[in-house]
């Protein structure tokens, strides 16, 4: 539970008053589903960190004689066509996919929120210029770009982070800006301006905290979409370099074999789906908890 406080504490909204934090915590604890999800995600992160010590086999270990075998006592989740232990491969895949998901989303979140909030709040020419830049980047066909980049530089983790992060911040910036535009016309902001508060202070204390709901909703949507984007690249053969695995590469292998060896699809897909569900439920919980205007009943 300590972890959740830390996580939420990084949100700018909580910098200002402790009463808000406490209220938010209180509301979050009331939401059972969100708590279960948070617990699951924590467990998953823990497992990912400890993978090298808890994985039953080495990730490259093969057993061609065994081939693809269904779940058994030796291999709880079965083996793939080269006789590699599925559990081990999923564990290592979890590391890769979570890392891609979190790092790329962090990149997107950082740039996107700052950019969108600033543009939306300052308005006028600055807004225009900033959103034009977003438009330019938006109009770049990213699928082609990521393909070309991975083709030129070879696929690497760093490139995946940068490329995916660079794509995802744009939508974030747009959503934040839209939200800010709506908020800034509301009475309390106008009041703050009338009171002579500095712009930066207004952005930090009023605009960002009020826009935080949609940002969190979108963040919880971004992590899964990043994970999906990675799997799309794996489907094109541009994902992670073998013999390493990611959820995306495991699932795309699984699809090929889904009729012969269903466990090759079911387990990685299940891991992915449950994680995405959990991320979404947690996002909901956080959203409800962090919204300062939510009813206190």
């Amino acid at each position: 539970m300590q972890r959740i406080t830390e996580q939420t504490a990084t949100e700018p909204v909580l910098e200002e008053g402790s009463s808000l934090t406490r209220d938010a915590m209180h509301r979050l604890f009331k939401n059972r589903l969100a708590l279960v999800s948070a617990g699951f995600l924590l467990l998953l992160i823990l497992v990912a960190l400890l993978t090298p010590w808890i994985a039953p086999y080495a990730y490259q270990d093969q057993n061609l004689l065994l081939g693809a075998s269904s779940p058994s006592a030796q291999h709880w989740l079965g083996t793939d066509t080269l006789g590699r232990d599925q559990l081990t491969r999923i564990l290592y895949g979890t590391r890769v996919s979570l890392m891609v998901g979190f790092v790329a989303t962090a990149v997107a979140l950082g740039i996107g929120v700052l950019w969108g909030a600033t543009a939306g709040y300052l308005g006028g020419r600055v807004d225009n210029a900033m959103m034009r830049i977003v438009d330019v980047l938006y109009a770049l066909p990213f699928a082609i770009f990521i393909i070309l980049l991975t083709v030129i530089f070879g696929s690497s983790m760093l490139l995946l982070f940068l490329a995916i992060g660079a794509v995802e911040w744009l939508t974030m910036a747009r959503i934040v800006r839209g939200q800010v535009l709506t908020i800034k016309r509301q009475e309390y902001i106008e009041a703050a301006i009338a009171m002579g508060l500095s712009r930066w202070r207004i952005i930090r204390r009023h605009v960002i905290p009020n826009a935080v709901g949609p940002i969190i909703v979108y963040t919880t949507l971004t992590i899964p979409s990043v994970i999906l984007l990675e799997s799309f690249l794996s489907f094109l053969g541009l994902g992670i370099q073998p013999p390493q695995s990611s959820w995306g590469s495991l699932i795309s292998d699984g699809v090929e074999n889904m009729e012969n060896y269903p466990w090759m699809l079911i387990f990685p897909a299940l891991t992915l789906s449950v994680t995405l569900f959990a991320l979404n439920f947690l996002g909901d919980g956080l959203r409800d908890a962090l919204d300062p205007r939510a009813s206190k009943d």
Binding site: Q60, Q62, T81, L82, V151, Q241, P242, P243, E256
Partner: peptide, 28 residues
Amino acid sequence: DVHERIAVVIQQMWRQELNVNVTLRNQD
């Protein structure tokens, strides 16, 4: 996919038989 699987298998064979390590690289 098939090239990848063969490469992974040969990588393992060379490691086991000759104690020689190779890495894999796929390109479009």
